[in-house]
C-alpha cells in the first residue's frame, strides 16, 4: 500500500509537469490547428534558462532559496516566452495559409535548430544542479513502509494548481481569453468581428511558452540534471497527454498529463523501467486509433 501511494505521489507530480507542457500544444492546436513541434524544445530552453540563472545567482551570492526561486521563475518565464514569441514570428506566421504540411515541417526544422543551438552554445554534457530544495514530509505506516512527499513535489502541485487557476481565469474572464475562444471557433469570423488575430496567436504562444518554462524549471529541480535532448521526449509525451485529454481542450490537457504521469510512474514501479517510454508511445498510438478525439475533445468535422 505504501509503495502504491508513493508511486501515486510521484505520478501526480510528473503528470502535472506533463500537463503544463501539454497545455501549450493544446492551445496552439485549438486556435491554428497545427502541432507546434518545437514546443518540447521551448520547455528544454526553459530548463536551461533556469539552470543558468540558478548558477548566476549562486555566483552573485544569492543563496536564500525562496528569493532565488522567485527570481529564477521570473527570468525563465520572461526569456522562454520571448523564445516562444520569436519562434511563432519567424517560423509560423509567414506560413499561415500555406499548404497543410508546411507549418509542421517548419516546426520540425525549428525544433532541430533550437536543439542544436543549445547543444552548440551550452555543450552536449549533462548539467547537474546542486539541490535547491531538499527534504520533505515522511509518513510511516504500521508495517514500517515509508511514503515521502518531497518539498519539490509539494511545490510542483501548488504551483501548477495556482497556474491553472490563473489560467482558467484568463480564458474565462479577460478580453484576451475571449479573443482566444473566438479564434478557436473561427479565425476569419473572429478577424471580421475586430479580434486582432495575429496578436491573439502571438499571445497564445507566449502563454504556452511561459507554462513550459515553469515546467522546465520544476523538472530541473525535480530531476537535478538536464541536457539539450530532454525536450524531445518530454515534447512527445506532453503531446500524447494533449491528445489523450482531447486536443484543443485545456482541462483535457491537464487530465491527460495526469493520466500519462500516473501510467508512467506505475509502469516503472511495477513492470520495467526500461520500457516506460515504450508505454507512453504505445498509449499515444492506442489513443489515436481508438479514441482520436481524446477524453474531453470535440469530434472534428473536416469541411471542404
Amino acid at each position: 500500500m505504501a509503495y502504491f501511494l508513493q508511486q501515486l505521489i510521484n505520478g501526480i507530480a510528473l503528470g502535472m509537469v506533463y500537463g503544463l507542457i501539454a497545455i501549450g500544444y493544446s492551445m496552439v492546436y485549438g486556435i491554428i490547428g497545427m502541432i507546434n513541434f518545437a514546443h518540447g524544445e521551448i520547455y528544454m530552453i526553459g530548463a536551461f534558462v533556469s539552470i543558468i540563472f540558478f548558477t548566476l545567482l549562486g555566483m552573485l551570492g544569492i543563496s536564500w532559496a525562496p528569493l532565488a526561486l522567485v527570481l529564477v521563475l521570473l527570468a525563465a518565464i520572461v526569456i522562454t516566452s520571448l523564445y516562444g514569441w520569436t519562434v511563432e514570428r519567424i517560423a509560423y506566421r509567414p506560413l499561415r495559409g500555406s499548404f497543410r504540411l508546411a507549418p509542421l515541417i517548419s516546426a520540425i526544422g525549428m525544433s532541430i535548430f533550437l536543439q542544436t543551438y543549445v547543444q552548440v552554445t551550452q555543450g552536449a554534457k549533462i548539467k547537474p544542479l546542486q539541490p535547491v530544495i531538499t527534504g520533505g514530509i515522511t509518513f510511516t505506516d504500521a508495517s514500517g513502509f515509508t511514503v515521502t512527499i518531497s518539498w519539490i513535489q509539494v511545490l510542483i502541485v501548488v504551483l501548477t494548481v495556482a497556474l491553472m487557476a490563473g489560467f482558467t481565469w484568463i480564458i474565462a474572464k479577460t478580453p484576451l481569453g475571449r479573443a482566444q475562444r473566438a479564434c478557436a471557433q473561427d479565425l476569419k469570423m473572429a478577424a471580421l468581428c475586430g479580434v486582432d488575430v495575429d496578436r491573439t496567436i502571438s499571445l497564445t504562444f507566449v502563454i504556452g511558452a511561459a507554462l513550459a518554462a515553469v515546467a522546465g524549471l520544476m523538472a530541473t529541480l525535480y530531476y537535478g540534471v538536464i541536457d539539450f535532448f530532454i525536450g524531445f521526449l518530454a515534447g512527445v509525451k506532453a503531446f500524447t497527454a494533449a491528445v489523450l485529454g482531447g486536443i484543443g481542450s485545456i482541462p483535457g490537457a491537464m487530465l491527460g498529463g495526469l493520466v500519462l504521469g500516473l501510467v508512467e510512474a506505475f509502469w516503472s514501479g511495477y513492470f520495467s523501467i526500461e520500457y516506460k517510454d515504450v508505454a507512453a508511445f504505445t498509449i499515444l498510438v492506442i489513443v489515436l486509433i481508438f479514441l482520436p478525439t481524446g477524453i474531453l475533445g470535440q469530434p472534428e468535422v473536416e469541411k471542404v
Binding site: 519567424i90 517560423a91 506560413l95 508546411a102 526544422g109 525549428m110 532541430i112 535548430f113 542544436t116 552548440v120
Partner: peptide, 19 residues
C-alpha cells in the same frame, strides 16, 4: 556540429521561401 543547425534553419527558410 553545425550541420543540424544548418538543416533546421534551412527547413524553416525553405518552407517560408518555397514551401
Amino acid at each position: 556540429t553545425y550541420r543540424m543547425l544548418f538543416f533546421g534553419a534551412a527547413m524553416v527558410l525553405i518552407m517560408i521561401w518555397r514551401p
